[in-house]
Design a protein around this nucleic acid. Structure first.
Lengths: 142, 142
DNA sequence: TCAAAAATGGATAAAAAAGTCCATTATTGA
DNA sequence: TCAATAATGGACTTTTTTATCCATTTTTGA
């Protein structure tokens, strides 16, 4: 039951990873993305709604509308994506202690702080742009 | 929705962390541990049952019975505990890809492998004995 | 030997997460 | 202006996880 992020977040990541340069420029509709990735449309829609609220994407209604990046895909990290969809999940104490600070900390506070630091910095080091590129590369190879 | 381990696993960790030297020698009952930690008895029981099946603890029925460590608490790591309760959770692909191997891997395979390595080695570096000690230290200080 | 103590495994209930649907709103272009 | 397109937010359903309960089994010692 180890999870870095929710299912919804996973879909968001997979959806955005499947975008092309052109999509980034001209925008993309849910239908297009979900057809390409075989993700469930209705659920992915919910995730995109969150990304809009969190200023990662912006949405344009009406014919020819769709979603557009609000920031450059280079400047959106994997961590940004997780936090936009799931919230500030990395702050909580790993042992569920309500007030886990340096004094009065849980038995593995310092270990966990160390792990978290690595985890977050690695997640920050991957951009949506990179996700897109490596996905497209994989598709070409296979 | 970030979780390193299940709720049950969390309870197991908290329960075992609350044991004393004497408990390790003479065994301990669910009631004793749960009174001390204010954990729900019935649920913690289920977790202990798993730990028994996974050879972390062994159980003795009847009056004066209870649970005993099957291995030395020094030799049980945090990681062992997680895997005993939750199974082999760290093997799965972070993006939910069924077959994520070096060739045909998901876009963040290598990043994730790196994070996982640190995560697992840190979790392996903490023993149940240490958890017990630091918990007891905290209790004395506060 | 039998009542009490302690664990077991299966059944069920409650809560949370995941997934679906729909009526509504916004926008476009014919 | 209005029909069609595309997103929105809320309501609802299903599935998974968490939590509880109980009848049964094992063991002890009076």
């Amino acid at each position: 039951m180890f999870r870095v992020y929710s299912k919804g977040c996973e879909y968001g990541i997979r959806a955005l990873s499947a975008l092309t340069e052109l999509d980034c420029k001209d925008g993309f509709s849910i239908e297009t993305v979900c057809r390409r990735t075989r993700l469930p449309v209705w659920f992915t829609r919910k995730v995109f709604q969150k990304l809009v609220r969190q200023n990662v994407l912006f949405a344009k209604c009406g014919p020819g509308g769709g979603y557009y990046f609000k920031k450059n895909p280079e400047d959106i990290s994997f961590l940004d994506l997780i936090q936009a969809v799931d919230g500030n999940v990395f702050q909580k104490c790993i042992l569920g202690k309500a007030k886990c600070r340096r004094s009065q900390s849980c038995p593995i506070h310092s270990t966990w702080e160390k792990i978290k630091k690595v985890l977050m910095s690695e997640l920050r080091s991957v951009s949506v742009k990179q996700l897109m590129e490596s996905r497209n590369r994989v598709l070409h190879v296979s």
